[in-house]
């Protein structure tokens, strides 16, 4: 066991290594470790929050979906109702239109009949005059017997 200057040398080296470790090694590594710990804790908390938000969102989506479904059902039933009404209305319209057309046609027929009758009446009057002329074989004053002819024609 020779003690010599090595003892002092080793003490100095030891001191330098301890100083270096304390100043340049320990702090950054421990800091990285604690930072990572914090980061992991943060990540876990964020994941937990995300999980909660997800379930909340799902709940909200379900609510929106339910509302939409109800609205759709309502709209559908309204539309069906409206369609029925429209069909009903058009049936009524068609019926009245038909009746109107029938009435118009009947009126037209009436008018045509009257016109034909009038025409016929005039033609019969002329024919009657001509026939009377022939029958009487004498000139009759048309103007003098006009009222007679008219009377006759009206009786046809």
């Amino acid at each position: 066991m020779n003690f010599n200057l090595t003892l002092i040398g080793q003490m100095i080296s030891f001191g330098v290594f301890v100083w270096f470790t304390m100043t340049y090694v320990w702090t950054p590594i421990v800091k990285a470790l604690s930072d990572r710990k914090a980061k992991i804790a943060e990540g876990l908390a964020a994941a937990e929050r995300g999980h909660q938000e997800k379930s909340l969102g799902e709940q909200r989506a379900q609510e929106v979906l339910n509302t939409a479904k109800a609205q759709a059902t309502e709209i559908l039933s309204q539309a069906q109702k409206r369609a029925g009404e429209i069909v009903e209305e058009s049936k009524v319209d068609a019926r009245s239109e038909g009746q109107r057309l029938i009435a118009a046609a009947q009126a037209e027929i009436e008018r045509e009949t009257n016109r034909a009758r009038e025409e016929l009446r005039e033609k019969v009057a002329t024919l009657a005059v001509a026939a009377a002329e022939k029958i009487l074989k004498k000139e009759i004053d048309v103007r003098a017997h006009q009222s007679l002819v008219d009377d006759f024609a009206r009786q046809i």
């Binding site: 340049y24 090694v25 590594i29 990285a32």
Partner: peptide, 15 residues
């Protein structure tokens, strides 16, 4: 020893 640990400490990443 100090070289290895210093190398790690210099590049110590949180990731």
């Amino acid at each position: 020893f100090v070289r290895f640990f210093r190398g790690v400490a210099e590049k110590a990443s949180v990731g």
